[in-house]
Design a protein around this nucleic acid. Structure first.
Lengths: 105, 105
DNA sequence: TTTTGACTTGTCATGAAGTGTCAAATGTAA
DNA sequence: TTACATTTGACACTTCATGACAAGTCAAAA
């Protein structure tokens, strides 16, 4: 499955949701946020809706801009990447668990 | 990080290790295994060493060919994908944990 | 109703990365 | 040396990610 595949049932990202939520809470416009991390407004819109990914630097900038926890934002960003990686595989949970075990060593 | 980047410290996959281990235990040649899942021997060699990825179907075929647990093989395959996704990020563990939490709901 | 502004959508060019294959190189045991 | 297994590097081809732009929708103000 690709990021652009509209046929999939999940079209949101946890980070995107968080960003939108925070942005609205702080009464900021997409335009303003986009400008701050130096991306197109369209891309920012897509990022909030999980249609495009941001890169690590942009996520960090965003967290700082929002005065939010950088760690929280990066975790969500990674979380989205993990979920995207295992997609909707029936064994997704087991795969993630195994990765967690392995990575600890 | 890309799969082909040789500068990386980690150039193995858990699935690849498992495959090699099993193949040697069963005294099979790369050639034979490759033929069975219908790929080039070179690709099989790379897969065992984590330089290339197999696709889901190939992994399933492999498990069957080895009379091994399909579930185990797919889990390892997903595990590799997860690890590749979070790369060496300092917050990798937290990201994976979060994904695990989210995916359960 | 027309305009304005915020957001969304589609598309495009470009480059990066994945895939399968082959030939040559390397290693190793007879 | 020869034979065979494995590895490596390179290639063509495809697929996907990225950034950018223009046009679209939509709601509220004028």
């Amino acid at each position: 499955m690709t990021l652009h595949d509209k046929s999939k049932y999940r079209n949101v990202s946890y980070l995107g949701q968080k960003i939108r939520e925070t942005r609205e809470k702080q009464n900021l416009l997409l335009r303003q946020v986009a400008a701050h991390i130096e991306v197109d407004t369209a891309l920012m819109s897509k990022a909030e809706r999980g249609e495009r990914n941001l890169n690590r630097d942009q996520v960090v900038k965003l967290a700082k801009f929002f005065n939010s926890s950088e760690e929280e934002y990066i975790s969500l960003w990674l979380c989205d990447k993990v979920i995207e990686a295992v997609d909707n595989d029936p064994l997704a949970t087991q795969g993630i668990k195994k990765a967690l075990t392995k990575i600890k060593n």
